[in-house]
Nucleic acid binder design. Sequence first.
DNA 1: TTGAAAGCGCTACCAG
DNA 2: CTGGTAGCGCTTTCAA
Lengths: 331, 331
Amino acid sequence: MNLDEVAKRAGVSAATVSRVLNNLNVVRDSTRERVMRAVSDLNYHPNLHARSLAGGKSRTIGMIASNLENPFFFDIFRTLEQDCHASGYEVLAAHTGYSPEQLIRSVRTMIGRRVAGLAVIVSEMAPDLMEELELSRIPTVFYDVGLAKHHISNIRVQYRRGIEHLVEHLHALGHKRFAFVGHHSLLGPTSEREQAFIETMRRVEPAPEWRTVADQDGPEGGRRAIAGLLDTGFQPTAVICVNDYTAIGVLRELRERGLSVPADVSVTGFDNIQLSEYCFPPLTTVHIPRDRIGHLVFEALAPKSGDAESEGREIVVEPELILRQSVSKAI
Amino acid sequence: MNLDEVAKRAGVSAATVSRVLNNLNVVRDSTRERVMRAVSDLNYHPNLHARSLAGGKSRTIGMIASNLENPFFFDIFRTLEQDCHASGYEVLAAHTGYSPEQLIRSVRTMIGRRVAGLAVIVSEMAPDLMEELELSRIPTVFYDVGLAKHHISNIRVQYRRGIEHLVEHLHALGHKRFAFVGHHSLLGPTSEREQAFIETMRRVEPAPEWRTVADQDGPEGGRRAIAGLLDTGFQPTAVICVNDYTAIGVLRELRERGLSVPADVSVTGFDNIQLSEYCFPPLTTVHIPRDRIGHLVFEALAPKSGDAESEGREIVVEPELILRQSVSKAI
DNA sequence: TTGAAAGCGCTACCAG
DNA sequence: CTGGTAGCGCTTTCAA
């Protein structure tokens, strides 16, 4: 089923069918109607591959995320998608499951699809990819990795600041034994959070005891991580989690061990996802404005009429401490 | 940047470059190497649109879900994606946010992309779509909607059975005032759950008091729904939620009103998503095997070598009651 | 307002 | 093993 058959059935040329389908208002109404009729009679659906091939441009934006299951990433996706739809763009989402190989595959696929722009919101990062993307000349946004370049923008969240807020708050409450629950991922924002944690620990007076552990991203990973740590005999009074999603698992494990939060142990998350208000107790966390990030990504990728070809920018996002019931004074 | 430029640079024909890129092992090693070198020198990425256009087949499977944020849908997606990747397929995911218009757009886009198969896992359903898809001859799987047809398979979960299990269990525990918390969506599985609830209520002796309410899918919707109901003065001792994700919001609202679960109110979910074990208290729910569903979808869509052109099948999935701590005897 | 025809970049078939 | 070439289905001039 193709344009020609539709054209034949409508008694017009392929060009005219194309005009109708693309809303070029140069077609006589009667002709347009005949075409539309043929289209629906034949259950015709334009081949999008042919369309992009012939048209050149793509009107599609790609987003690659480490873990779309984590609401943090999904919230960014949702906002980006809304903005895109509002401007007639499609969004293609891919997730890597934190696998660097999958990341490479996804990036290549996106380039192969000739997306109009690409958002790479991942923690794992292969350095060569940056160059591959730069060379591809596709407008790209990275999240917390690398530096802005010609076609590459960069959004960076002041994770360090967020962690510092958290630690200072807990420290002021008298906590002296800290744990950091991270997740596996070689580079990027995660380890920035861990680094910030470690450095802050070293700076604080009097020097606290502290440990770091890591497992998968998510409730299950968080649960296993804290379980492993507690099994070593270390008894933190404050547990700082790399993100809210992981913190949910920590809360459960503590609860099942008969440890009360925050009476026995204070717990913090990061991101301020919706679930952080719905878990028990609600999490003290650090707000990262995913919606704002989504909008920023869109702005960086969609060529606003006027901008010739926007250069890559460096965009900084400030986090904000959110106090809830999962934290209290040290025992 | 295209095949020809690569061919020129490598001093071979476009056909040969194509052979190398497609791993047709008929190319001399030295030639292959020269080509690969040219490819990487030029940072060449094959145009996937041209490829599918020329090749005809697509090696891509589409999945449309109502709400990818709800782990129920995401789990199906994850499994499907794993199976697909293992067999060299790509997956294109779209979500509709329960919007029938978006569903139509997504389906059309998928057809336009000429996907090799399409999974439509949604609650909202426009009847004409079924025919549009049937006519498109794309192998399709619907979830709990319509009937199997020529190219259309159907997975149906015995929701009715699941709800009955739940109600009987609660009834046996002496509950006499029930609430059903649903979510908006005109047709399909959701209302099947609600219908099952209503019919079961009418059948049970002695006749219980009951109400149904609905809001969005998700914690926020669940919270608002139960809040609205409680504000009317109705005091259920058992709240049956359309799914676990929504139940999380119900748990929070009850907690904030000082109602203890399960001492004051019993709450049940549906789906048995991972979070149902992580919330407080852990939810009594009904297990729906999302991984099995994911596998079934894949099998129904990917033409296993051997099958000429598998006919649409009707596949039935049995749910299973899972008892946890969110339910107890009526006060 | 409409038609004819030249590509878009790639695969696949036919020769050599 | 390699090259030439005819499409795949659509958009987009250029003419009419």
